[in-house]
Design a protein around this nucleic acid. Structure first.
Lengths: 134, 134
DNA sequence: TCCACTATAGGATTATCTCCTATAGTGGCT
DNA sequence: AGCCACTATAGGAGATAATCCTATAGTGGA
């Protein structure tokens, strides 16, 4: 069956651009385009890597919040680059992201577990009433 | 440190309302308010259960897409209820959601793994250049 | 001259979800 | 009767994360 653009395909799930970018920046200074290439090489995105302009927007927003800093590097060949690095508070934010994602993974795990139970039951064609305690 | 409404708190992560609701409906007919009570009792939501009006909106949208059907039940006591059930195509969509969520979990897993590596390295204060192959 | 690649960035739109508010029936309390 | 809590459905307005499309600009090759 073809679900086209139905959310069940995962097309509209958040790609977690900010935590991904912060994780890369924790390893060293990077400019937007380089981050994008890392995201592309990273794989694991069922519907392609995040949009480039979205990465720039995320960087800009994170800078305004003090999670990253930037400075322009005029390179030998090609246009100048804006190089980003993670600040102290960015590092703290990243640590918090990690806790959050561990919880989130557990939540998704629970949902998948619930779906596993279903496949057995509704195969045998139940379909009564639940949650009706009257 | 207090991150307030920062996305790193998980406040803005999707609560996956549609797959959750579909999973409940796979077990039996339910109306919106009953679904909400199930969501509330389910727990696992770091920032509280999904918003009630969002649940109704999701149901309406899924009905327009043919994933759920509804009929009004005028009950003995209290206002009438709109009772929803999952259609054949809703069941297929739910199955697809399961595959999608398994992939998504793997992706989050990978990110958490990457963050785990970091905690070791950037503690020792590296911070060079990565992704710069020139 | 035209095109590909590197590099940054804004306009407009979509998807998901939230807070706030409106409506309405039932039943209990005072 | 008046008020409130609970059950039940639902829309308006807005926040957030992401997308597609387009604009800009420098470098280097055909």
């Amino acid at each position: 069956m073809d679900f086209g653009d139905c959310p069940c395909t995962g097309k509209t799930l958040t790609k977690l651009v900010k935590p991904l970018v912060m994780a890369f920046l924790a390893k060293g200074r990077l400019h937007g385009y380089a981050i994008q290439r890392l995201l592309e090489s990273q794989g694991g995105f069922a519907h392609g890597p995040p949009d480039l302009s979205g990465v720039y927007r995320s960087l800009k927003e994170m800078e305004s919040q003090g999670y990253v800093e930037s400075s322009w590097i005029s390179s030998d060949g090609g246009p100048p680059k804006r190089c980003f690095s993670l600040t102290e508070s960015g590092l703290a934010c990243l640590a918090r992201w990690k806790e959050t994602l561990i919880d989130y993974r557990a939540q998704i795990d629970e949902l998948i577990g619930f779906m596993d139970e279903l496949t057995l039951e509704e195969m045998s064609g139940q379909g009564g009433e639940i949650g009706e305690e009257r």
